[in-house]
């Protein structure tokens, strides 16, 4: 059964131009599409193939390529399979279309991505702050945001092994992880 569905899905996907389909397993497909073809693809998947559940939208910042990658994961309850549609958009100005009219849960994911990466989704119902309501720095998941520099500026630091902690360690409490093992920036290469 699932072989059949897979075969049928592959045929369906061929209808879209510029698409690259990579089948990972009988129940998992990765498709790479040009950004402007994504709404059509999702419409097709939702309307004709039963992929009615948008499980997540994820985002990757490829700073060296100057691009964001957006991944739309859609799930079908009929064929029990997942399609991940990958698109790339330019990092500047970082604007893309909302898929809210196709999948309403997208509002939630898009708002989150907007907050964390600063991507603006046109047509999304709400681009207000979401979790970081009290944050006024830059979007923190962008690669150019230097978390370590930020905390050095705003928060103070104390030795991982202050003397009073050693007292606790002697009694069998506490964790000792030397900073060179814990901090990537101090790791010996």
């Amino acid at each position: 059964m699932s072989q059949q569905v897979a075969h049928w899905l592959d045929n369906l996907l061929k209808e879209i131009e510029g698409i690259e389909v990579r089948r990972k397993s009988s129940r998992r497909v990765r498709v790479d599409v040009p950004a402007d073809a994504l709404p059509a693809l999702l419409e097709l998947l939702q309307g004709r193939a039963g992929y009615i559940h948008l499980s997540a939208i994820s985002c990757v910042d490829w700073i060296d390529d100057g691009e964001f990658e957006l991944v739309y994961h859609v799930w079908s309850y009929e064929s029990h399979s997942l399609v991940s549609a990958h698109i790339r958009i330019a990092r500047e100005p970082g604007v893309y279309l909302s898929v809210y009219d196709l999948y309403q849960p997208a509002a939630f994911f898009e708002r989150d991505i907007h907050e964390m990466y600063g991507i603006h989704f046109e047509g999304s119902p709400n681009m207000e702050k979401f979790i970081l309501t009290e944050w006024d720095g830059p979007p923190p998941m962008r690669k150019e945001f230097d978390s370590e520099a930020y905390i050095n500026e705003h928060l103070s630091w104390q030795e991982y092994n202050p003397e009073w902690l050693q007292e606790l360690v002697a009694e069998g409490g506490g964790v000792i992880i030397p900073p060179e093992e814990q901090r990537f920036s101090q790791k010996k290469k």
Binding site: W135, G137, P140, F145, S147, I151, L155, R183
Partner: peptide, 8 residues
């Protein structure tokens, strides 16, 4: 330790 979101 490196998170922007937690107090140290």
């Amino acid at each position: 330790w490196q998170s922007y979101a937690t107090a140290k």
